[in-house]
Simulated assay, not measured.
Amino acid sequence: MDQKHIFDIKAIEPPKHDAWKRMLPLSLLLVAVICVAWYFGWDAKAVTAGILLFGVVSNVFVWIIGLIGLVPVVGPLIVKVLSLSIIWLLNAIGYIVSFVAIKRGYSKDVLTYRGLTIALIIGIIIGYVIGHFL
């Protein structure tokens, strides 16, 4: 019986050292589209959906996170914090609660709540960085 190995030497591709030649113009294109959309007042939801779809398909976001990770000492910490699932979970729960509260007419309370949520997330990030250095 012929077994295939998960890590086949032929399937492993060497790292691409010239990826910046494609990713830098794509990143600048995304920034330009955001600026043009803001200037002309295009629908924010449509532009956001388009930017997210384009960024995920083209891996531009991964490249930008990789650039942030190249910054000595602080860069890897920022990448670790951005990839913590608890941060994403807290933010998602905050958006769901905000949506429900706005529908019920508590828009002023939502503003206070979102401010507290952002303060909590920033506190977690600062605590993580300080804890890493101690």
Rank of each mutant, 00 (worst) to 15 (best):
N59I: 06
T117Y: 14
S98C: 10
V60M: 10
V62G: 11
W42D: 07
I122M: 09
V79K: 12
L90M: 02
L90E: 09
A92P: 12
G115N: 02
A101L: 07
V47G: 02
G105L: 01
V73Y: 09
K45S: 15
F7R: 09
D18N: 00
K21V: 11
L28E: 01
V60H: 06
L52R: 05
V74I: 04
L28A: 02
D2A: 14
D109K: 13
V97P: 06
A119Q: 06
A92Q: 09
V33N: 02
V47K: 03
A11H: 08
N59S: 03
L120N: 05
L111M: 08
I125E: 12
I118S: 08
I78H: 08
D2P: 08
G41M: 04
V47I: 07
A92L: 09
G55T: 01
I6N: 02
S58V: 05
Y113C: 06
G75A: 01
I122V: 09
S83N: 10
M1G: 08
I125N: 10
K80Q: 02
E13N: 08
T48E: 03
L116W: 09
H5I: 14
Y39Q: 04
Y39I: 12
L82Q: 14
A11P: 15
F61R: 10
V57L: 03
W38M: 15
P15I: 03
K21P: 13
V33G: 07
L29I: 07
K108L: 15
L29A: 13
D18M: 00
G50A: 06
V47A: 01
G69V: 00
L82N: 07
N91E: 14
L111G: 07
H5K: 14
G105M: 00
L30T: 13
S58K: 07
A92D: 12
I124Y: 06
V31P: 00
I96V: 09
S107G: 03
L70E: 12
R114A: 15
G127S: 15
L52S: 05
L26P: 01
K108A: 13
L111P: 06
I65K: 13
Y128T: 13
L26I: 04
D43S: 10
G41S: 05
L84Q: 12
I102Y: 04
F40L: 04
R104D: 14
I93G: 05
V47W: 06
K45R: 13
L26A: 10
I86Q: 03
L89C: 06
P76F: 05
E13R: 06
N59T: 04
I6Q: 05
V31N: 02
L30K: 12
I12N: 00
V60C: 09
W38K: 15
D109V: 04
L24V: 06
V97L: 09
I65M: 15
S58A: 06
V79R: 11
G131N: 05
V81P: 12
L134D: 11
K45N: 15
V47Q: 01
H5V: 10
P25A: 00
I78P: 04
F7S: 13
I121S: 09
L24I: 07
L134R: 08
K80M: 00
I124L: 14
